Simulated assay, not measured.
Amino acid sequence: MSEHILVYTLLALGVASTLVAGVFQAFSDFVMRGLVAAEPMGGAQSMQMINRTVMRSVFLVLLLGLVPVTLAVSLVAQFGVDGAARGWIHAGTAVYLVSVFLVTMLGNVPMNNRLDRMVPSEQATARYWDHYGRVWTRWNHVRTLGSFAAGVCFIVAALALA
């Protein structure tokens, strides 16, 4: 991969990662607070609809698409980039994989799947909704910070190469 293409790829990764961070940040800042403040039936049902809608969104393509692209760029960097840029690329990839992808797959998605199987009007859903709101949002804070940090790493790597 030519150095110019790698610089532009890293900038694109930086922008994409920070866009993902922006969506996560919106949920951490006000979406979840609004949903949790609603009656449990309304909040849970709204989150069920959000989770179903996200499955057909550009956001999901970006969130999951960054995984193979960051791994590929990290592999290219391992064999074709020297100096600080390689470290920043590896750091961005590691941070994204652990704090965004793994947290999503092992933390948020199982909670979403459990919520999706529940009937909003049932008492068990109301009890779970309180737990869901607190724990899901904590994991989401991790994803917000992780995707932002990964974006910064990729942008710093691009600047180091430029």
Rank of each mutant, 00 (worst) to 15 (best):
M1R: 06
M1W: 00
T9V: 12
L10P: 04
L11V: 08
L11C: 08
L11Q: 04
L11P: 00
G14E: 06
G14V: 04
S17N: 15
T18Y: 01
L19M: 14
V20C: 14
A21Y: 01
F24L: 10
Q25A: 15
S28V: 12
S28H: 11
D29C: 10
D29W: 15
D29V: 14
D29E: 12
V31R: 11
M32D: 00
R33V: 12
R33P: 14
G34K: 07
L35Q: 13
L35S: 09
A37I: 02
A38Q: 15
P40C: 10
G42Q: 12
G43E: 03
A44P: 02
Q45W: 05
S46I: 04
M47S: 10
N51H: 12
V54C: 10
M55V: 12
R56G: 02
R56L: 07
F59S: 00
L60P: 03
V61S: 12
L66P: 00
P68R: 05
P68L: 05
P68M: 03
V69K: 03
A72E: 00
S74T: 03
A77T: 01
A77W: 03
G80W: 03
V81L: 04
D82V: 07
A84H: 09
A84F: 10
R86H: 04
G87V: 04
H90G: 00
H90A: 13
A91V: 11
A94I: 11
V95Y: 02
V98T: 08
V98I: 14
S99L: 13
S99K: 02
V100C: 09
V103R: 06
T104M: 07
G107P: 13
V109N: 10
P110Y: 08
N112L: 01
N112R: 04
N113F: 01
N113C: 00
R114D: 04
R114L: 10
M118E: 09
M118K: 05
V119H: 14
S121G: 14
S121K: 13
E122W: 09
E122V: 10
A124S: 14
T125W: 12
A126M: 04
R127I: 10
R127D: 15
R127C: 08
R127K: 13
W129G: 11
Y132T: 04
R134C: 00
V135F: 01
W136M: 02
T137Q: 13
W139I: 01
N140E: 06
N140P: 11
V142G: 02
V142P: 01
V142D: 02
R143G: 06
R143E: 09
T144G: 08
T144H: 09
G146R: 08
S147H: 09
F148L: 14
V152F: 09
C153R: 14
F154I: 03
L159K: 07
A162Y: 10
